[in-house]
Write a protein that binds this DNA or RNA. Sequence first.
DNA 1: TCTTCAATTGAACATATGTTCATATGTTAA
DNA 2: TTAACATATGAACATATGTTCAATTGAAGA
Lengths: 115, 115
Amino acid sequence: MNDICLIKCIDKKKVNRTLESMPDYEVIARMADIFKVLSDPSRLKIVLALLDCELCVCDIAAVCGQTDSAISHQLRILRTLKIVKNRRKGKSVFYTIDDDHVTALISMSLEHVNH
Amino acid sequence: MNDICLIKCIDKKKVNRTLESMPDYEVIARMADIFKVLSDPSRLKIVLALLDCELCVCDIAAVCGQTDSAISHQLRILRTLKIVKNRRKGKSVFYTIDDDHVTALISMSLEHVNH
DNA sequence: TCTTCAATTGAACATATGTTCATATGTTAA
DNA sequence: TTAACATATGAACATATGTTCAATTGAAGA
């Protein structure tokens, strides 16, 4: 199985150099998690909505055209990954972007897509 | 179904303002696609490897500890999304990062994770 | 042309993920 | 404390996604 690789065209110096500069698995996994949470259009739309101002669950549901339940599920995921944070005010729970880095990431990819 | 929302706590002004500044669906979808393609640890590792230097399929496979076939599948996805590009040299095919924006995105998220 | 070998592709499988419906929290006002 | 209501949660379902094995393509040298 692994023997196949040995007779292939591997440039061992390059490979070793690349392996040395490769971030730890944990770092890669955390980067991937951030990208993953932003990779669903529904969630991305929520984050884009919150880029402007604080909104409650039911406002977000109205913006996204989805049920409160669906939005709540997505918000929980976003909360777990520290993408958004919330505060309760009476019966409502208001959400905002938690992290400036996320705002920057979103803005950058938005610029990229818009050329 | 939709009637439920009407009797809830929706702030119509906020909602309308947010809807106006919301990017088009196509833009959101393209942003999501970029994030999605970077959200798989296997693919992210490939991109991180290519951040340093040009590598052939079989070098990448060695770096990532996966089969050439698996890497080839991932590279095709990365190619389709214009994340990487390739050039043939003899029997080998060498890959590099296609887009500076991608490099910037990766670097930013790497910094973020590293505090 | 034939052989070797790096890369690609196809198809099938297992797993992960988002969504939905139903139910449960928890807060406010009466 | 009760009723009303905004939000959250659980479980089940359908779909999407990554991986694997097998077969194919395409290039280089004998």
